[in-house]
């Protein structure tokens, strides 16, 4: 673990150089340990792939005091053997071609059938490494290298809400309509961000996610909506 200065009232804790489930667990444990201080000595926390940014109240703490607090916390966590696994969240996905404009191309480039891509995508659990880009947008990893695919050269102006997507070795569900360059392989009917609800998101960083294929009928029963219009994915 390494602590570095990020700004006048921010420091960043690095847990590892690379993405790993173990580092993600450590970040999650530290985030949970510091969370009760948010609103007091800590203003906000941003967990990410291998780091945790801590923004603190510099009226009452300076960098060195906050650093000491974190080092002490880290000692306490090291002595605590409790499991660091987040909860397991299952997200249903309708992988039908009308919901998956990039599935055929992705399969073709990978030398697989679309069914194989779908099977590989749901064969494993993913770690929620980071949340950002847009409210409720969780970066999930890591995707099996066989179905990893680079971002599209030209991003779409409007990716539909619920779109399940792949970029490099990451996968995600778009929480709302937004521009985006990821490869779209399905639609998830579970709302990823509901401002009026508590919690507003079904998952947090550190949680694990598994995708489960569903039929079109199930998708619609679960409240999913297919994008409308003549060219919904342009």
């Amino acid at each position: 673990m390494k602590i570095e200065i990020a700004g006048e009232n921010a420091l960043i804790i690095y847990f590892a150089e690379q993405v790993s489930v173990e580092a993600s667990g450590q970040i999650q444990a530290m985030t949970n340990a510091l969370q009760p201080l948010v609103g007091q000595s800590i203003i906000d926390l941003i967990p990410s792939y291998a780091s945790l940014l801590v923004i603190y109240d510099d009226d009452h703490y300076d960098y060195y005091a906050m650093r000491s607090l974190i080092l002490a916390q880290s000692q306490a966590l090291a002595n605590d053997a409790q499991t660091r696994d987040g909860k397991l969240v299952t997200l249903p996905v309708y992988y039908g071609l009308e919901a998956a404009p990039d599935l055929e191309e992705l399969a073709q480039k990978a030398g697989l059938t679309t069914d194989e891509v779908i099977q590989i995508h749901q064969a494993q659990t993913y770690q929620a490494y980071a949340i950002g880009f847009a409210p409720g947008f969780a970066f999930l990893g890591e995707v099996d290298p066989r179905i990893a695919a680079p971002r599209k050269a030209t991003p779409r102006k409007a990716v539909p809400k619920g779109a399940v997507a792949i970029a490099d070795r990451q996968t995600a569900v778009y929480p709302s309509v937004s521009p985006g360059g990821w490869n779209l392989i399905g639609l998830c009917p579970t709302p990823m961000f509901e401002p009026e609800k508590t919690p507003a998101m079904p998952l947090s960083t550190g949680d694990r996610v598994q995708f489960k294929a569903i039929s079109k009928a199930e998708f619609l029963v679960l409240g999913g909506e297919l994008p409308s219009g003549e060219h919904p994915y342009e």
């Binding site: 990020a6 006048e8 967990p47 990410s48 792939y49 940014l53 923004i55 880009f133």
Partner: peptide, 28 residues
């Protein structure tokens, strides 16, 4: 790796021109 960004952070993308991140910045 993407990481948390604090207010006022000065990013230098590959074009070498600074971007000062302000109130509505993305968080990572």
């Amino acid at each position: 790796l993407s990481e948390g960004i604090c207010h006022g952070a000065i990013q230098l993308p590959p074009d070498g021109q600074p971007i000062v991140l302000l109130n509505d910045r993305q968080t990572i």
